[in-house]
Design a protein around this nucleic acid. Sequence first.
DNA 1: TTAAACTTTCAATAATTAGTGAAAGTTTAT
DNA 2: ATAAACTTTCACTAATTATTGAAAGTTTAA
Lengths: 168, 168
Amino acid sequence: MELNEAKQKFIEAWGKLGSEWGINRTMAQIHALLLISPDALTTEEIMETLSISRGNANMTLRDLIGWGLIEKQHRAGERKEYFYADKDTWNIARQVAKERRKRELDPVLKVLDEISKVEGDLKDPEFATFYKSVTDINKLAKNVDKTLDTMLKAEESWFWGSIFKMFK
Amino acid sequence: MELNEAKQKFIEAWGKLGSEWGINRTMAQIHALLLISPDALTTEEIMETLSISRGNANMTLRDLIGWGLIEKQHRAGERKEYFYADKDTWNIARQVAKERRKRELDPVLKVLDEISKVEGDLKDPEFATFYKSVTDINKLAKNVDKTLDTMLKAEESWFWGSIFKMFK
DNA sequence: TTAAACTTTCAATAATTAGTGAAAGTTTAT
DNA sequence: ATAAACTTTCACTAATTATTGAAAGTTTAA
């Protein structure tokens, strides 16, 4: 396989994975493109490489900055903005985990806590089943939350080292 | 809060979370409904409770069976099919992890392995950056894969116990 | 100030994904 | 056989989400 073909495949695969996980395709693709670029790229270059419009490129780049995955760079004597992706995979994973926790897990935990408060008679199967499912899910969600918390603070090698002790 | 209101909120929250994670809303909602139902429900009851069409209910129920999250039940002397959800949260988490790994992680690992094979000169920054990003992501993906593997085989208490040892 | 270089916005449109419901298919009881 | 009870399919429509591109906005340099 040739390098440019491989790059193309990587961008496609990353875009597809992103869309299956609720991250839009363009966002994942721009991120992929920047990940494999040694230098920062301009909006123009990104538009051209991925065949997307200026508006789309601009908005998606801002989203990526919002996710903490890329940053703007300025060059002396130039007006153009250049975009550069953090290449540290562990940082990327943490950043994504952090954002999704904030946007999705936190609100769900809030709802679960709220609806866990509903009172009723455990002799009533309707109530008992509802209550058990909700509190079980709440427990699982809290465990996930705590684990993410650890992960966010952790060094990569320590984190995976600890995980792999589980295999023994 | 009253029980029916709480049920409603739970179904909504589950549906919303599902759609943010690439699982369609109806699927997550039907699953939520069955999770909090003490008894198995018919297609008819599900259609009515969630105000969805027969076609949608039928297809989604089949998908849920495909995901291993619910099962059909038959009752002596009745033609109707009843649907029942596994209420064990840990089983649910494992089932979802298993399916998504099969459908999404596995294909990505395949692509990553394939494009990792591309050869080039590490002195060339274009190649070096591409190669490093791809192999780093490949390593991370493999770690996730192994961890999922452990999770799929594990008992819930053992799994979280091991995770929480990490806090010490 | 003004005009060139560049970035941002947003209404309109396209693309994708989900949902409907009537018709076709299947099973069972008589 | 046949008809009632039930399930499945699928062409069509609706809803949602992503993308465009032209216009408006901003910054900089002369």
